[in-house]
């Protein structure tokens, strides 16, 4: 939801605190689930992730979540899916060149990052996503690989 997405960026610091507090627990729960159920619960877990992150960030389920490094603004909402933005076409009023009614997700990202404690991570270079992970759960991937 667009309005929720803007709210999330405005509250990026709070979300960062929640993320840092909840993330280790979430990952250990997912590791436990993985141990017991294997891949049998992948679909409901993925659906839960899509629902919560979909509501808060308009998450596109790229499978390679970097929200904590992009000021809680999901880069996959950029019409060019730029992972290292913004592009040079941002309008003078900060709106997207392609969708004039949408705030540039990367203007939002830099704003969000400025509010966060570890916002400097936005300066890390992100290589293009692995297209095979599209639609899969970033949580499960982290739980299994982390």
């Amino acid at each position: 939801m667009y309005r929720a997405r803007l709210w999330s960026v405005r509250h990026s610091r709070g979300l960062e605190i929640i993320y840092n507090a909840v993330n280790p627990a979430l990952l250990s729960i997912l590791r436990g689930i993985n141990k017991i159920f294997g891949r049998h619960l992948d679909r409901p877990v993925t659906a839960l992730e899509a629902m919560t992150k979909g509501f808060l960030f308009d998450c596109q389920m790229c499978g390679d979540c970097i929200l904590s490094k992009t000021g809680m603004s999901c880069p996959m909402n950029c019409p060019k899916t730029i992972r290292n933005g913004p592009c040079g076409g941002v309008r003078e009023n900060g709106m997207c060149e392609v969708k004039p009614d949408m705030r540039c997700v990367w203007v939002e990202a830099w704003n969000g990052a400025a509010r966060m404690k570890d916002g400097g991570a936005i300066k890390d270079i992100q290589f293009a996503v692995d297209y095979r992970d599209s639609g899969s759960s970033a949580w499960l991937r982290l739980a299994r690989n982390g």
Partner: peptide
């Protein structure tokens, strides 16, 4: 370059690729 979106041009019905962005392209 990342490039302009297809909607800016004379073939707005084309499929935009954007597999990489300019920085991934540099890499």
């Amino acid at each position: 370059l990342t490039g302009d979106d297809v909607s800016a041009g004379d073939h707005p019905e084309a499929k935009p690729v954007f597999d990489l962005d300019s920085i991934s392209l540099l890499q």
